[in-house]
Nucleic acid binder design. Structure first.
Lengths: 250, 250
DNA sequence: CGTACCCTTGATTAATCTCAAACGTAGTGG
DNA sequence: CCACTACGTTTGAGATTAATCAAGGGTACG
């Protein structure tokens, strides 16, 4: 896959196009999220063709991938890092509608304008496709469309989970459910089960759970005090899995 | 379209198959939600073929269309009435994840098991397709799949709106935003703008907005006291559109 | 070393929930 | 026809959760 770096090398916004076609194949084959992403819908020979439509981009933390209401120039297939997706109210209140992890696709809707903003929580790598190019490719690949539809409806299910959480769970249940959900999502990427990496800030977690920073912090402290978790740098370690699960109030 | 009644006629669960093929065409052509529903993706000759895959069912209020975690036997295309979609927590807390109006499709995900429950708020009419039959038809109609994907991503956008509402809006803003959203959805079906029909109970509205019945009632009363709306049987009438919109806190 | 930022903790306030009761309406049966 | 019941809605008073306001502690980075 052609490779572009948007932050390293010779200047803050330099673009450096890297590998040849042969290299591209190697990169896709080595892709850590190969089996999870949209790409899993494609045959090896299609994947080769597909990969040539994109560029691999590396972005630093806080970089914007998608800006709400702006024209959707690109869609992304995240390969490393974590991205927050959010909407803002006019007075500045923010609701994070999701966190994207490696393997996640940004821009499923393929709409002309973005319906949310997205920026990197920590440095990210992604396959970036011009939306128009992707749309043309999609038009002649029904099985890719089917995969996209699967991903969309899965997202919709997650969104409904989140509605239950936001509307009907207490602060403690929200935090517990968040940790469990994050553990489950990470475990599909790497095997580490009891250590949950949380690269995002408490503020981000609060804006995802419909809570203030202070409340998130208090609930984390409470879970730690109750020996359910230990707070470690950039995450938590689960001490009592059963207890944490029971606190979610399924 | 073949017609089945699940509540009228000779017994509580009687099924009465009605019209012939010729009649079916007439019914689809007359369908009030023809231009809104999935059907809008189909050519007239396809529509004829498509319609023969379904039965028109009529269900009384409170009837269950979809039961969470059960096998998804049917998918529905709502033609009349209102349906609430919801999830339950094990202790009985309920979150309504959406209301389906005429033209809406239930079962977009096409998954083997239902991820939510759905029941009629008031008597409904719907085109009912056996899931397997629909899936087979879908497999050979990429433009239908495309339409389904469009509908799914639109649902996802609505779900994200709802997350903002649930996570970051006050009780008054929630109720105001609910009324505005409902007015907008009705206006796509019939032209009546200032009268908003609300066939669902206050409890339903509360379970949709993440509020208690009492709070919904109080906010409705407040809006009425402030001369923004008038509460009428089975709905509200908007008195001050601008004010109501400003209360949503875009 | 200082500054900035994030996280935590404490005290107080405010929004919403809970509990309780009264009201209205629709349907039922005497 | 009316009384009675059932159910949904409204209103009030008090309890509770989470927000707000305020301050201190830790860590990273220049």
């Amino acid at each position: 896959m052609a490779r572009v770096s948007a932050h390293d090398g010779d200047g803050p916004h330099s673009l450096r196009v890297g590998c040849s076609h042969a290299t591209c194949e190697t990169i896709c084959a080595d892709c850590p999220v190969r089996g999870l992403a949209v790409c899993s819908a494609l045959e090896p020979e299609e994947l080769d063709e597909f990969s040539r439509l994109s560029q691999t981009v590396h972005l630093p933390g806080k970089a914007t991938l998608i800006a709400q209401d702006e024209e959707a120039e690109y869609i992304f297939n995240l390969t490393a890092g974590v991205v927050r997706l959010y909407r803002l109210l006019s007075d500045g209140r923010r609701q994070i509608v999701g966190f994207a992890l490696p393997g996640d696709f940004l821009g499923l809707a393929m709409t002309k304008r973005n319906t949310f903003s997205a920026d990197a929580v920590a440095p990210v790598a992604a396959c970036r496709f011009p939306r128009e190019v992707f749309a043309r490719y999609l038009a002649e690949k029904p099985h890719l469309l089917r995969r996209l539809h699967e991903l969309s409806t899965h997202e919709l299910t997650l969104a409904q989970d989140q509605m239950v959480l936001l509307g009907r769970r207490t602060a403690e249940e929200k935090v517990a459910a968040f940790l469990i959900a994050f553990r489950d999502r990470w475990s599909r990427i790497n095997q580490a089960h009891l250590h949950i990496p949380l690269p995002m800030s408490r503020q981000d977690i609060g804006d995802f759970l419909g809570l203030t920073v202070e409340t998130v912090s208090r609930m984390m402290t409470k879970l730690a005090r109750d020996k359910v978790i230990v707070i470690v740098p950039d995450g938590v370690r689960i001490l009592d899995e059963k207890k944490l699960e029971s606190l979610c109030a399924g």
